[in-house]
Design a protein around this nucleic acid. Structure first.
Length: 432
DNA sequence: TCTGGGGTCCTAGGACCC
DNA sequence: TCTGGGGTCCTAGGACCC
């Protein structure tokens, strides 16, 4: 007989997810809109990326282009905001800090979600316990959250999906019987299962797998043959196994870094494209320097709008650097070289971007025979630029190639302009 | 007129080696 | 001379997530 030292103790995983996060952040500083329908738009005021419950109710869909819903917005007096990622990032850090202090085993899954491992805690009443977490976050930040608990990540996602719909805002699946869980899974549409996107849900529906219950009891050999290991893991987790582990490392470092933006107005000239590409390159360079990483190769891509039926163009060029670097000068030179190779006249470009690949820690790259003596000088120059930009705002100190006019820059017609680092935005409290 | 941005991971297929 | 086949590594593209 084969013995393994698997920890067979049942896992307890909680997923904390902020409700309509970007909307909730805007409401924090604007309590007057706490009952109104509110939406937050993507960069360039392009699409709807967050909706309040009221906005959902009047039929505004996730990802819908803003220009298509302008009528609904006017008729229903919907409050519209351009996205303010500096604000959302700041509120997110506050919430994650609270959670980290309470629960050391935590995965920061996204800007508004975290997985907690509660397996080793002695919790008498799970429902009361997670209601307390919810209250603590609300009291300290003003952001409402939902919490779902299950025996693995996939089931905690499903629990959270249900928690969003009930009044308490929390759901615990760990005390339920198999039959009770199955009845719940029968009411979860296949496309609402974590890890099942558009392609997979089409495939599943064609094969008569329409809900989470049917996926749970589908043939694993069929799943293995027709999907990938992720598909299989999802099925196993629906069956209660724990296959997708928590990524709990303090700071997950990037493996790649991409900065890309659509233009506020279409761009045709090489000069303007160059300005945009260099600006994106400098922003990406600042990000990877903050994480103390070096870049092995860069990709530059440009494209016209996919909705523009005439003259569609999408091109990219990759350049491998001789030596991994974090030097803005070298990186932007490489980006401009790449752009020269792919630029074509006569197109109305809608988007440009820069991707850094092969990121490594800069201390892993210490002693290179070919690192020239100027690199130390450049190092201190980069540090100086970064600290100036932290002090005076992004792009305040930059390279001449990144331009100064920026007529291609983003549209943000609905910004709340809230800046949590500024005294003007401290809320006023009146007493007596 | 106007349709987001930033990530991760997996797989197939090519190049190369022995 | 033997020109098959297995292994590894890399990359582009696709799918997924929020």
């Amino acid at each position: 007989m084969l013995f393994t030292n698997y920890n067979t103790k049942k896992k307890i995983i909680a997923l904390v997810d902020c409700n309509s996060f970007y909307v909730s952040c805007e409401r924090l500083f604007n309590p007057k809109i706490s009952q109104s329908p509110v939406v937050v738009l993507s960069n360039n005021d392009g699409c709807v990326i967050a909706r309040s419950a009221e906005a959902k109710k009047i039929g505004i869909k996730m990802g819908e282009p803003y220009f298509k819903i302008k009528n609904i917005v006017t008729i229903n007096n919907v409050q519209v905001f351009s996205s303010n990622y500096a604000l959302y990032g700041d509120i997110s850090r506050r919430i994650m800090t609270i959670l980290k202090n309470l629960f050391p085993i935590i995965e920061y899954y996204s800007i508004d979600e975290a997985f907690l491992d509660l397996s080793n805690m002695s919790i008498k009443n799970m429902n009361n316990f997670i209601i307390d977490i919810k209250k603590t976050i609300y009291q300290n930040t003003g952001i409402p959250v939902s919490i779902g608990v299950g025996s693995n990540k996939t089931l905690s996602k499903i629990a959270n999906h249900l928690a969003k719909k009930n009044i308490e805002g929390v759901v615990d699946l760990t005390k339920l019987t198999q039959e009770e869980i199955n009845n719940i899974l029968k009411n979860i549409d296949i496309e609402d299962v974590w890890g099942v996107g558009r392609q997979l849900s089409n495939l599943y529906k064609k094969n008569k797998i329409n809900n989470a219950y049917e996926l749970k009891y589908s043939s694993s050999s069929w799943i293995k043959k027709n999907t990938n290991v992720f598909g299989l893991k999802t099925v196993m987790e629906l069956n209660g196994a724990s296959c997708i582990t928590l990524e709990t490392s303090e700071k997950k470092k990037r493996k790649s870094c991409c900065v890309s933006k659509s233009f506020g107005n279409k761009v045709e000239s090489f000069e303007e494209l160059k300005e945009a590409v260099v600006t994106h390159c400098l922003n990406a360079a600042e990000k990877i320097r903050e994480d103390e990483q070096l870049v092995k190769s860069v990709i530059v891509f440009i494209r016209t709008s996919p909705f523009d039926k005439h003259l569609f163009l999408s091109r990219s060029e990759k350049i491998d650097l001789a030596i991994s670097t974090d030097d803005s000068m070298i990186l932007s030179r490489a980006c401009v070289d790449a752009l020269k190779k792919i630029f074509a006249k006569g197109y109305r470009y809608q988007k440009a971007g820069v991707v850094f690949l092969g990121l490594v820690n800069n201390n892993e790259y210490g002693q290179n025979l070919f690192v020239d003596k100027n690199s130390q000088k450049s190092n201190s120059l980069m540090k100086a630029i970064d600290s100036m930009n932290v002090k005076f705002g992004r792009n305040s100190l930059t390279l001449a190639d990144s331009g100064v006019g920026h007529c291609w820059k983003m549209r943000r017609d609905h910004s709340s302009k809230i800046d949590t680092s500024h005294f003007d935005f401290l809320p006023t409290v009146k007493s007596g």
